[in-house]
């Protein structure tokens, strides 16, 4: 296989990498760039643990080829906090005990941030359907939904 050279932007930083033509972006992030915050729970787009945004759209990075990242803007969990200042969602997840094992947490945070960008004041039902692409096996989702509600409220300045 001949490698594909890709120039892209990840969390605001210019990044170049070479990957196999059939290599998922998730593998590139994790194995080539050391960005292991995105997790592989299934590799088939069914669990959301590898969620990132690509040009602002929420996607599963396991269903994107690394080669497709050329010229795109990628945001991962590693870029969510502003320096040492956690994002309100990150704080709310900790304070609401919205994580137990934490493996799904990066994906939930990315998905929740994308949800709140589109809908600043979602109902419980909108949160539940908005996060239906992210599986959590520990919490029963209760505390996750509450954390998103709390963060949304804070972000609205309410």
């Amino acid at each position: 296989m001949s490698g594909v050279h890709v120039s892209t932007t990840i969390n605001g930083d210019p990044i170049d990498f070479v990957c196999d033509p059939d290599e998922p972006l998730l593998d590139v992030l994790r194995n080539r760039l050391g960005l292991t915050g995105a997790k592989e729970g299934c590799g088939t787009g069914d669990c959301g643990a590898c969620s990132i945004t690509l040009d602002g759209e929420l996607v599963c990075s396991c269903l994107v080829l690394g080669a497709e990242a050329e010229g795109r803007k990628i945001e991962t969990i590693e870029g969510m906090a502003d320096g040492d200042k956690l994002h309100p969602l990150q704080r709310a997840f900790i304070s609401n005990a919205a994580l137990q094992c934490g493996i799904c947490t990066p994906g939930f945070l990315i998905a929740a941030k994308a949800l709140l960008k589109k809908n600043k004041n979602p109902t419980e039902e909108e949160i539940r359907f908005g996060l239906a692409g992210n599986l959590c096996r520990c919490t029963g989702y209760d505390k996750i939904v509450r954390a998103v509600q709390e963060a949304a409220k804070e972000m609205r300045g309410a």
């Binding site: 033509p21 059939d22 590799g43 088939t44 787009g45 396991c62 269903l63 994107v64 080829l65």
Partner: peptide, 26 residues
């Protein structure tokens, strides 16, 4: 042909298809 890739990448991961050429139409 790669459009959204939400089926193609799953098929590739499962080893059901091993294309010699991927044409991304996006």
């Amino acid at each position: 042909i790669l459009a959204g890739g939400t089926d193609l990448l799953v098929r590739m991961k499962g080893g059901f298809i091993e294309p010699d050429l991927i044409v991304d139409i996006k």
